[in-house]
């Protein structure tokens, strides 16, 4: 399907003039300009040159920006629009991050009916520009991650209320995967299992979370979490099998991000 120029920033950088195959071989400096424009709406030249080349004199930074823009124009004509002092991706350019944010707003807006939120949760997964370590990327990556997890939990909640339990489990589990020690994600997962009448799955999910939390942080789940399964919890757990939903080696804050390489 061709849909006009597209920029993908989740799960790695890609750009395409027509929504089809990605343009290969773009130097990192050019990728950074496109990515930055994809994340900011309409930064001034000063701001973008300063952020992208913080360690060089201003004149050098502007020179680098000019040459990067020239290469962008050659590789994907019409991708960037220059107006006065401002730079922006042209109207109609699709950016996956903007679509993710649009999806988050739709999920969190009670006025938007569930029927209009038809994007599968796997389609909004992905880290922002993995392997990039610029400050503006790190901050935005964390912000998007929090936004998505919050929206996934809210979506799971809405799906439970709509009786769509299987999809609720998938949404809740997507949040669990992003942050395996986040209790609110596990709570909604347990509630989705309970709403479907799947007591054993609920207890299994609870026990996996409780054990991981004890192992990694030496704390217990909150009373709110314990209350969900309290009626059954003095009982023996379901048969232990190869099913722990929460893995070991994981640190408290964003183990997945910390587990990546540390410098480019």
């Amino acid at each position: 399907m061709t849909t006009g120029p597209s920029v993908w920033l989740l799960d790695g950088f890609r750009v395409s003039p027509d929504g089809g195959p990605a343009v290969g071989g773009l130097p990192h400096g050019v990728q950074r300009v496109i990515a930055h424009l994809g994340l900011c709406r309409r930064p001034g030249r000063e701001a973008i040159a300063g952020q992208l080349w913080p360690d060089v004199p201003e004149a050098r930074a502007h020179g680098s920006l000019r040459s990067a823009l020239w290469r962008v124009q050659k590789a994907v004509p019409g991708l960037v629009e220059v107006t006065g002092d401002g730079l922006a991706l042209a109207r109609g350019v699709r950016v996956d991050v903007r679509e993710l944010v649009g999806w988050v707003h739709a999920v969190l807006d009670p006025a938007v009916p569930l029927a209009r939120i038809d994007r599968p949760v796997t389609a909004v997964a992905g880290d922002l520009l993995p392997g990039w370590y610029d400050d503006w990327v790190l901050l935005e990556r964390e912000r998007l991650c929090q936004l998505r997890m919050h929206a996934l939990e809210a979506l799971a909640d809405r799906l439970i209320r709509a009786g769509r339990h299987g999809e609720a489990v998938q949404a809740a589990y997507a949040a669990v995967r992003d942050e395996p020690l986040r209790e609110s994600a596990h709570r909604v997962l347990v509630r989705a299992h309970l709403a479907e009448g799947n007591l054993a799955e609920a207890i299994g999910a609870y026990v996996a979370f409780r054990d991981a939390l004890g192992r990694e942080l030496a704390v217990a789940p909150t009373a709110q979490m314990q209350a969900l399964v309290a009626p059954w919890c003095g009982r023996p757990a379901p048969p232990a099998r190869d099913r722990a939903a929460v893995p070991r080696a994981r640190t408290a804050t964003g183990g997945r991000r910390a587990a990546g390489v540390t410098a480019r």
Binding site: G166, Q170, Y173, A174, R177, P247, R248
Partner: peptide, 16 residues
């Protein structure tokens, strides 16, 4: 861990 998490996700997906 990336296998354990994906295993559980696929298990739930298939069961449902």
């Amino acid at each position: 861990e990336w296998v354990v998490l994906e295993r559980e996700r696929l298990r739930q997906l298939r069961l449902h």
